[in-house]
Design a protein around this nucleic acid. Structure first.
Length: 460
RNA sequence: GUGGCCAUGGUGUAAUGGUUAACACGGAGGUUUGUGGAACCUUCGAUCUGGGUUCAAUUCCCAGUGGCCACCCCA
């Protein structure tokens, strides 16, 4: 707080690009959201887990995939003095699978259901809904291939979002198959695109070779026509994947969760298999459904159509969250056995940006009914002791001990709309009493300190 | 990574190629250490950084940095 040398220009430290301080009301908003989300997750059987911010680099290179953008160019990495290559976690799933394997959770009752929350880091250019450090809340169910797990994750997610006030939610869902059927599909997709190689944008030309699935992600107008004619993954599913997907959709229908099968939804991380999904808030009217692509038989005959919207182009707005099944991640990380699992990650900042979002206060916020006022040096000296008596009695208070004058303290109480004031001055300090003042009627009463807690409880 | 727009006290705004950069809010102190929403007074506090053009730059130019946004990709 020294302001000497203010003439000399000093470089004041600032926060790092794309990273923000979270202060005051905003901080409460995060706590409130996390508290609510955790409560819901716990209700559905998820247990908390906290993994470190730093992980070994190879966790993500082998887990998420060397060729993904996330790993290729978005990781904050560092080399320790000991020569270890570490990264700041860019996502939550791989660390949790790591923890599952490391702690032998295979021997726990399956499935293991976990939730996590906290900061994640991606080195990319900040823009709307994207910062370099962002907050995420996630759910994971590890150790079961069953469709009910997929449904539980999606359902719990939708509940959390609804409790946060969001209304017009759209669930985009797709199945990208498994080891059995996906390679065949990818091959067919690549073959299809190869025929049109000359008509593609530069990125897509590259993708044909490196990651054909992501051809479906391309938004370049040039490629749209070709994309429309591309084979879709759901029509190439093997029997097991098909019935898994069908079952997931049946659960969603039973849960009354509207969904939209989006054949172009592939997601960027390598570890996904079968179910993939993203949730967005619909702000405009529905995206016009283009000519219906082959519907998966999954939908069965009768149900469905009113509940199901189909279209080619989705992702009008930013994804609030996304996830999917990652049955092969464990093996990528070196596990001998496959560990089937599914999870979701939610972007808290993106949830806050939506139209529907309603702020929630965390429980630690109290609304004090009493303002503590002290007057004079002796009284000030004993103030903290008096306050502790009140705290022990679980009476929330507000105060401004740094202020001296009675007037300024009273007006602070007034400004904060606190109905009662406790005035503790020199005279009271000698008598071991306080004055309790009703701020509305301005009537006052002298109360013994020993009876203060009891008295305050009666006036509330 | 690439591109567009932007950059003045803590916050929100104003102004200017030329003495002292204006206003509001805010903070601190006071009028008033013993009874409040007010008023008044005092005070704190800024031209992002570095180069260039110029007699003179906060203003014009360039670069950097940061912010917002878009692409890429994602939460």
């Amino acid at each position: 707080m020294t302001k000497a040398n203010s003439s000399a220009k000093k470089e004041v430290p600032t926060s790092v690009k794309g990273m923000q301080d979270i202060i005051g009301e905003e901080s409460y908003a995060y706590s409130g959201f996390y508290e609510k989300a955790s409560e819901i997750a716990m209700y559905y059987g998820f247990k908390p887990i906290e993994t470190p911010i730093l992980e070994k680099e190879e966790l993500f290179t082998s887990g998420v995939g060397q060729d993904t953008d996330l790993v290729e160019k978005e990781m904050y990495s560092l080399k320790t003095k000991g020569g270890d290559h570490l990264v700041m976690r860019p996502e939550g799933t791989a660390p949790i699978m790591r923890a599952y394997i490391e702690h032998g959770m295979q021997s726990w009752t399956q499935p293991v259901m976990l939730y996590y929350k906290g900061p994640f880091f991606r080195h990319e250019n900040p823009q709307k809904g994207r910062t370099r450090q962002f907050q995420s809340f996630g759910l994971e169910i590890l150790g079961t291939p069953k469709a009910i797990a997929d449904a539980t994750v999606i359902h719990t997610t939708m509940i959390i979002l609804k409790e946060a006030g969001l209304q017009n939610l759209v669930l985009n869902i797709n199945s990208i198959g498994d080891r059995e059927c996906r390679p065949k599909y990818v091959k067919e997709l690549a073959n299809y695109y190869k025929k049109h190689l000359s008509e593609l944008c530069v990125d897509c030309k590259r993708r044909v070779k490196e990651n054909p699935l992501r051809l479906l992600d391309c938004k370049n107008p040039k490629c749209q026509v070709i994309k429309e004619g591309a084979p879709s993954s759901v029509t190439h599913l093997c029997d097991e994947c098909r019935s898994h997907f069908k079952e997931v959709l049946e659960y969603l229908e039973a849960l009354n969760i509207p969904y939209r099968i989006n054949n172009n939804l592939v997601r960027g991380l390598d570890y996904y298999s079968r179910t993939v999904f993203e949730i967005t808030e619909e702000t405009y009217e529905d995206v016009p459904a283009m000519e219906a692509e082959e519907k998966p038989e999954a939908k069965g005959g009768k149900k469905g159509d009113k509940n199901v919207k189909e279209s080619e182009i989705v992702a009008v707005s930013l994804a609030l969250g996304g996830g999917g099944r990652y049955d092969y991640l464990a093996k990528n990380l070196g596990s001998k056995k496959d560990i089937p699992a599914i999870g979701v990650g939610l972007g808290v900042e993106r949830i806050f940006m939506t139209q529907g979002y309603k702020r929630m206060d965390p429980r630690i916020i109290k609304h004090p009914k009493v303002y503590f006022i002290q007057l004079g040096t002796h009284a000030k000296m004993r103030s903290l002791n008096i306050i502790e008596i009140l705290r022990n009695a679980r009476i929330p208070i507000a105060q401004s001990l740094a202020k001296d004058s009675l007037g300024s303290q009273l007006s602070a109480a007034e400004k904060n709309k606190i109905p009662y004031a406790i005035i503790f001055g020199e005279k009271e300090a000698i008598d071991d009493t306080v004055i309790v003042r009703d701020m509305n009627t301005r009537s006052q009463e002298t109360v013994k300190i020993t009876e203060l807690a009891k008295y305050v409880k009666t006036i509330k």
